[in-house]
Design a protein around this nucleic acid. Structure first.
Lengths: 142, 142
DNA sequence: TATTGTTATACTCTATAACTATA
DNA sequence: TATAGTTATAGAGTATAACAATA
């Protein structure tokens, strides 16, 4: 039975609401030691070193806001600033050991929270989730 | 083939990351006219009228913060305060027509954004997503 | 006396505009 | 002259503590 427009809209709404609810629960139930916007920056730098300007664009905040956020994270010992030898204007940010540890611990806690919620599922249900994840990842690439 | 512990942890991580990525995209790509925390309050009141105290608890903010947020939304014409006849201390908040219109327009925009991303999928893929939504909704009830 | 909500005050996050250093 | 980043300043969100009104 092919999907009608109404059924597809309903599915879109269900996917959106479930994702937002799950995301909210993850944020609330395994909070990091730093504020959410600060943690988001740490994760970006954890994936790869970044300049303040790149981070401001990725986080959709102004450069001055990112300067302040970065200052806090440097003061807290999670980030370090390094001069870029190829362009004296830029300053590359990297994680300290404490910063990497914080990111990895928080990610582990969140994955563990999610894991406990998937433990009671059947293998068929887990396979459904795996397929859905693959589909959504593909959809979000566009 | 039954799921190993490692495979289940990987699945948990994939589900978590996909949900957070999707949620972030929705938030960024179809922003409301009011700030996110304000919109969240409007949605709560849209579902049912609420007192400031209930909203503070639902949103995990302090009562004074909620007072301020509610003041902004009342001033902007999205909420109205009404006295509770059964308890003079409480003040029940309800949406104005403009508030309801804003909530419904934003929800529609977000669902439409999601819909456009699901349009290219096969019926089998859509059915996978529908099953995944049902599974996650069940998991989140606990 | 306990509860609901608001006001007082201080701190943090955000933005725009202005400034410094480098390209 | 343009770009990367920071500082200056102001506006908005948040919290704790104190207060007002009601139960």
């Amino acid at each position: 039975m092919p999907y009608s427009n109404d059924a597809l809209l309903q599915l879109a709404s269900d996917v959106r609401m479930t994702s937002q609810l799950l995301s909210r629960r993850i944020r609330f139930e395994s909070a990091s030691e730093v504020a959410p916007h600060q943690f988001s920056v740490l994760v970006k730098v954890w994936k790869q070193p970044r300049t303040p300007g790149e981070l401001a664009e990725l986080e959709r905040v102004s450069p001055p806001s990112m300067t302040r956020t970065v200052n806090c994270l440097v003061d807290a010992g999670y980030l370090t600033r390094q001069a870029d030898p190829s362009d004296g204007r830029q300053r590359v940010l990297t994680l300290t050991d404490a910063g990497a540890a914080l990111v990895e611990k928080t990610i582990h806690d969140r994955d563990d929270w999610m894991l406990r919620r998937l433990e009671g599922l059947t293998d068929a249900e887990r396979a459904d989730l795996a397929r859905a994840v693959e589909i959504l990842a593909r959809v979000l690439e566009k």
